[in-house]
Nucleic acid binder design. Structure first.
Length: 228
DNA sequence: TGCCAGGCCGGGT
DNA sequence: ACCCGGCATGGC
């Protein structure tokens, strides 16, 4: 069992500084409460945020942005409200599963839940139907301030574009590479992931020649900076 | 008009 | 251990 692979020393820190200087703080995650952040993390699975915002607005108007309210509401009514976010039957089931878990394991208390050790809570979240690695880590980081790096499609694409991933690393391998190449600081992981999403949305898109804007290659040794 | 968006699961090799 | 189809809506 060897040490996780790492990125070139210092490269990620310099990249982060450049992104932050260029684009400023992103104030993530969008959401007024921890529970709303969790709901957003579930609803945004493979879905444009604009659609998620609609569904969250529906929940807010129906006063359903608490775990207890979601636990008590009928599934068919919840599903109607979630409709704009897509996959609404799946997401109804996932939300219901999460609040049941929260109720049974932590008496419905997010404070108690987030007081659990990161690795324990991560495993528990992954056991909830509909919550996978990215959703679990988004919940841990953005709602709970646990220091985990969220690996999403944007992060993967940017790293692949710059030939920083060798072979076909899985989610956890990429996450460990990122976490072990940076100070383990939840505020850094928060801002870094948010900036990656910003750059991914605006520049580093498939077939976009302006992908040079995502800049990562400028901060790497020539040997690892080859862009496909 | 098709293609895509801040994934995840289950069944098949 | 991978690979794939299904899940669904709204925007560009």
């Amino acid at each position: 069992m060897d040490r996780p692979k790492r990125f070139p020393p210092g490269a990620l820190s310099v990249y982060f500084d450049a992104l932050f200087l260029a684009h400023g703080p992103q104030h993530w995650w969008p959401g007024r409460t921890r529970f709303e952040i969790i709901v957003g993390a579930i609803l945004t699975q493979n879905t444009a945020w604009k659609n998620v915002a609609r569904a969250i607005r529906n929940l807010r108007h129906a006063r359903l942005l608490t775990a207890d309210a979601i636990r008590r509401i009928r599934a068919d009514r919840l599903a109607r409200l979630l409709r704009p976010s897509g996959y609404f039957r799946q997401k109804t089931r996932t939300l219901k599963s999460f609040v049941r878990f929260l109720h049974e394991e932590y008496q419905g208390s997010l404070s108690r839940m987030f007081a659990a050790p990161t690795d324990v809570l991560r495993a528990q979240l992954l056991a909830v139907h509909g919550i996978g690695p990215e959703t679990a880590d988004s919940i841990l980081l953005y709602a709970g301030q646990h220091p985990v790096f969220v690996v999403d499609a944007y992060a993967r694409r940017i790293l692949e574009r710059h030939a920083l991933l060798h072979g076909k690393p899985g989610y956890d391998e990429i996450r460990e590479m990122l976490e072990s190449s940076l100070p383990r600081n939840h505020q850094l992981f928060n801002e870094f992931h948010a900036l990656i999403v910003y750059v991914g949305k605006n520049y580093c898109r498939p077939n976009n020649p302006r992908c040079s804007q995502c800049c990562l290659s400028r901060f790497l040794p020539q040997s690892s900076a080859a862009i496909p």
